[in-house]
Amino acid sequence: MALVIPKESYSGKIYEVQIGSGGKSVTIGGANALPFLSFEGVFPHKPAVALEIMDIAPTDWPETVQKAVSGASANPVSWAKFCQEQGADLVALRLLGTHPDQQNKSADEAARVAADVAAAIDVPLVILGSGQAEKDSQVLQAAAAATRGKNCAIGKAVEENYKTVAAAAMANDHKLIAMSQLDVNLAKQLNILLSQMGFAKEKIIMDPMSSALGYGLEYTYSVMERIRQAALLQNDPMMQTPIVCDIGLNVWKVKETIAPDAEMPEWGGLADRALAWEVISASGMLTAGADMLIMRHPGAAAKTKELIADLM
């Protein structure tokens, strides 16, 4: 008897979300099967890799990744151009300088940076707040208005500020990144609340609150798996948004990306080890269903893009 490969049949499909415009625009989503199971469904778009930049110098970043961007990171515009030259599919601007515990920069100042960066690059722009929900609603409103027409992805809309952030995205024709706290039910709830206020669910990108290897990656993995099962097998329209994983944020906090050669000689050299750590974390998120990754090390991003090309 001939071997018949068992195939799962799916009833759902991930929404296609376009970011940016023109030749360098990026579309993510569109899959109708679990990640990389190309014998079961179609995958019209590769997962996209964004490189992260900030509105302030990356003095908090570990040395390995700071060094990798040191020629350009003194100002956000040169840093953004550098990322584009490095082959990033998108640039993700994190407005960390607006955080009250950082430099507490004003919303207007942040908006100017966002507009300058958007004007300097051809690839699409992701605009992220500092993660302080209250301040982010002002900052993202201003940044969304300043980049109107650029079809950016702005975020993160969270439970505490989703109304203002979503309204800003809606008013300025941007896509929205909505983040919940590592919980499938809360992720669905936030998407329901956004749709109920009139924000099209087809314009949402879901951030399940991603993590890094050694920093709880397995929790994110399980949440993403469950989200994709609901989206594809149960055809749940609220779970069919593409997923973004903001991994650089956590990768560069784990010991394996920081500990110097002398401290942990058996772990191998720090430079290669740290880069590999970000690639491995990225690969885990890709197999769980990530449609977009936000990464920090240009070398790690390049390796991840190679991996994606090999898998597709």
């Binding site: 039910n185 329901i192 609901a230 749940d236």
Partner: peptide, 12 residues
């Protein structure tokens, strides 16, 4: 378990 719980599941 045929649909995923969310606080607003009745409104869907």
């Amino acid at each position: 378990g045929k649909t995923m719980y969310a606080h607003s599941y009745l409104e869907m």
